[in-house]
Design a protein around this nucleic acid. Sequence first.
DNA 1: AAGTAAACGAGACGGTACGTCCTGTCTTCTT
DNA 2: AAGAAGACAGGACGTACCGTCTCGTTTACTT
Lengths: 198, 198, 198, 198
Amino acid sequence: MSIEHTRRHTGRRRNEAARQAILTAAVELLGRPDVGAASIDTIAAAAGVGKQTIYRWWPSKGAVLLEAMIERANMEAPTPDTGCVLTDLTTFLTAVFTAVHAGPAAAVLRAVMAEAQHNQHAAELFGEFTAHRRAALRSVLEKGVDRGELAADADLDLVVDQAFGVLWYRMLTGHGELTAASASRLAAALVRQAAGLE
Amino acid sequence: MSIEHTRRHTGRRRNEAARQAILTAAVELLGRPDVGAASIDTIAAAAGVGKQTIYRWWPSKGAVLLEAMIERANMEAPTPDTGCVLTDLTTFLTAVFTAVHAGPAAAVLRAVMAEAQHNQHAAELFGEFTAHRRAALRSVLEKGVDRGELAADADLDLVVDQAFGVLWYRMLTGHGELTAASASRLAAALVRQAAGLE
Amino acid sequence: MSIEHTRRHTGRRRNEAARQAILTAAVELLGRPDVGAASIDTIAAAAGVGKQTIYRWWPSKGAVLLEAMIERANMEAPTPDTGCVLTDLTTFLTAVFTAVHAGPAAAVLRAVMAEAQHNQHAAELFGEFTAHRRAALRSVLEKGVDRGELAADADLDLVVDQAFGVLWYRMLTGHGELTAASASRLAAALVRQAAGLE
Amino acid sequence: MSIEHTRRHTGRRRNEAARQAILTAAVELLGRPDVGAASIDTIAAAAGVGKQTIYRWWPSKGAVLLEAMIERANMEAPTPDTGCVLTDLTTFLTAVFTAVHAGPAAAVLRAVMAEAQHNQHAAELFGEFTAHRRAALRSVLEKGVDRGELAADADLDLVVDQAFGVLWYRMLTGHGELTAASASRLAAALVRQAAGLE
DNA sequence: AAGTAAACGAGACGGTACGTCCTGTCTTCTT
DNA sequence: AAGAAGACAGGACGTACCGTCTCGTTTACTT
């Protein structure tokens, strides 16, 4: 028997309402046309929160945005399993492309990326996020390999990077559409590429 | 009506040494491990130059970095024409990947990208730059179509975006190698993908 | 009508140890060379006490310091009555000067004064304190008047302000000694001044 | 012949208008009934100035206030020389008392004093200021000694500290008037005290 | 040679945002 | 009910940059 229950926690608990208000305000401000409107000060003011409450729980602005992104922007796209890798991949990419195309997600993602380029904290968190996303997509492709739809020696990491590469490249440069049609074409091309050469 | 083509210019000319010193200092500072060390102030100080000399010739920090990138980082990759699209594409991507892999180019590119996310000037200039780069790569692929190596209905814009997408995605997330071998694999995969399905 | 004089008090009583710890910590921290080290947070932490325990019993930081001053710094100088006003005054001022000269009292007094300049609570409490101190000194002088040692029309309020004025002025500016010798000279000068002109 | 004129100054010069605006705003804000309204932020805002412009020229808020005090509050009281020490002292103290009694000077002086209690820079500057003021008053008294109006062995430093002590003590505690009548009584008392005892 | 004009190094300016610190209040669990 | 712990809103602090604006100096073309 372990003692261990010396003292679990003491003092006031984290205010969930404040946390939500901060994330909401962050997303809302990033959605504004005025780029750069989302500073820690303005987020705190918009959320009706002290700046310290932000810094108590997040190490940097990027971390706030990342969390907002994950929670708000619903980037947790499904990893479908219909038995057909083309269908699965199309579904996955369509979900991601349209999520980014329509809502405020693109602004948030772009801001997170920018933050990660000159902020250590943000870079690490962003790295974890993208790794997780790649793993999700890879698992979809691996099922295709298992079923023999894709070549056994296909370079899945490369395929994954091509998929997310197109997404990020178009989002960051602002060129090219991120439509459902575009996602379908990309999915088809990638499957064709990885299917092997009969 | 006065012709007035007398007196073309009066006063001191632009100091090329200063221009070079600014670009060099910018690249050098971005190469530092300390991210964020490259501000206009620090660049000016490092170059032994007044800030106004920077703003006289460039509209924003992003513009300085972009020019530094083009001139220093030697991003002007060749657009080879050997008669074989796989060879041409491999050459192109290898040049780009290794340029980014080795030198300080990656740091500069990442900084430019970050700048472009919250700066109008920088975004436009960056857009022009990437459009130019895409056009270069596209011309390589178009020759492949003309020769029948690639399918006539291949979505070349998508292929281009996949190529640059992988580059930028790996550079920005810091994941995945940007080696010559990696470039070759990507070139081969893209040609396979666009070759058509006979 | 219910009498209800059962249950005089319910709940835990005030913790005297906590009170002492707070006052001790306040004085100790003010004695530190690092000026400004004494905040409510640091006092609470040093005393091993919650902040609320401080605010439950004192309305402001100034009030804590004032109480610490009165209790610790032993500012409750005696109001001697030997039958000789010069002796009494010398004793009084020597006690005050040396108390301030030696111990941590000066730091506490200076902090209280500073607090009182931008804090309503502190100002009022400080006003009461100084009024009480003036009354004590005045009573010493009044006995001298009664005995005919001082002129009947002597401006005792002015004499009192001269005495405390020298003390505070030297303490706050850090100039001039606050020694026993100095106290004696001041006492003699004030008696000479107020004795009238025979 | 010395060369020496290597380069006197380079770059833009200090903006005198900004300096004046800062000092004016500081005094104006301290005059407000709302204690604590004078922060660096509010002073900068009221003066239409960036905060850095304040920090570029003054090491602390106390330094700003001190300079404002010296320049605005016209604390440079005259050091009269009429040949009669009582007249001179009365004139001097009346000028000081009424200056403090009427205008915004008292608020500024109190704030400077408070600053000096927890700020090294401010303390040193304040020390210089008060030393200068003491010297001025002392020179008035010394002439009285020279003329035989005051005792040759009078403790002039003590007299000076009594005069300024009464001023500061009354100002800081808010008790007692600082009127012309009050100044006259104090002058008379101090002369009587220091005149010697024949 | 003298005049004129632009570019230069230097650096002060008004602003905005940062991240830290402190105050006084409030919750939560423990004594 | 009081205490220790600690989160909360608010707000000041002092620093770092940005992009603009003087300064006095230097360099080059025009007269």
